[in-house]
């Protein structure tokens, strides 16, 4: 790999966007090239500095109320008169989205496009999450929730030994209201993946754990798919997806308590 190729790919590496094979290639280049190593260190340093600051904004309550009021009521009241609706433009087309933008980067963008087609990881969030939800559904439907049933983390954790290329952390969160039920082998993205099963009241939480090419920590994100909530994060070379039908707040609480217990155990 040349420095020209690596110049853009090290960003994808730092962002955890490369598939495992290409991540190793770029890592190998970085290890052998002082210039790219310095560049890579600079990127990570900036990502870290950004991660320590909360750069998001919270929508003002008045704005939220205004939007709520502008939306049609859930209970049918009065039909919204067309005159009340702001005249709207045609749906955004790709072309109109592009218009008005500086095109200064077109040349190197073209160069990058050729590279990207081959190297970007294909396990994009969306497809993986759909598979994760399917796995969660299968575990509920088929009466195959657990391969090893135990509320004891010291039984569940060793059970995974030799069955996976990772050792999924098994943490007892019973005291926090999330009961450990057991563990299970599942298949996501055509490979074996560990699932640690918890219960919250009558709800099942599947915590899926898989290896990832990036050792960079990635803060939690919450998504919803097919009526299930998903909290995904990445830490110390492992990707986590917690899936359940419990509400977002409780699932978030679960994830936070798990992450806190993890950082306390090291």
């Amino acid at each position: 790999m040349t420095c020209d190729e690596a110049e853009i790919l090290i960003h994808a590496l730092a962002d955890g966007e490369l598939d495992a094979g290409h991540a190793r290639e770029v890592e190998a280049h970085v290890a052998s090239c002082p210039r790219c190593a310095a560049e890579f260190a600079a990127i990570r340093q900036m990502k870290q500095a950004l991660a320590t600051a909360d750069l998001t904004f919270k929508a003002p309550a008045a704005l939220r109320e205004r939007i709520e009021a502008a939306l049609p009521p859930v209970q049918p009241l009065q039909p919204l008169q067309p005159s009340n609706v702001t005249p709207l433009a045609a749906p955004p087309s790709r072309r109109s989205l592009l218009r008005g933008f500086a095109l200064g980067s077109a040349v190197s963008a073209l160069a990058a496009t050729g590279l990207v087609a081959i190297v970007l990881r294909n396990d994009d969030q969306q497809r993986i999450e759909a598979e994760i939800v399917s796995a969660h559904l299968r575990s509920l439907q088929a009466g195959h929730l657990t391969d090893v049933i135990s509320t004891d983390q010291h039984t569940v954790k060793p059970w995974f030994n030799g069955k996976l290329d990772v050792a999924p952390p098994v943490i007892d969160l019973t005291a926090e209201g999330f009961t450990l039920v057991g563990g299970r082998l599942d298949y996501v993205d055509a490979r074996a993946i560990g699932a640690v099963v918890y219960r919250r009241r009558q709800h099942v939480i599947n915590l899926f754990v898989a290896q990832t090419s990036s050792t960079e920590r990635r803060a939690a994100r919450l998504d919803a798919l097919q009526g299930f909530n998903i909290r995904s994060w990445r830490d110390r070379g492992l990707s986590y997806w917690a899936v359940s039908d419990i509400n977002t707040d409780e699932l978030n609480e679960f994830g936070e308590r798990f992450e806190r217990a993890m950082s306390g155990s090291s």
Binding site: R94, A109, A112
Partner: peptide, 11 residues
């Protein structure tokens, strides 16, 4: 509405 390559170079 741009190719992924453009995203990478802009970033």
């Amino acid at each position: 509405g741009v190719p992924v390559g453009t995203v990478m170079s802009r970033l």
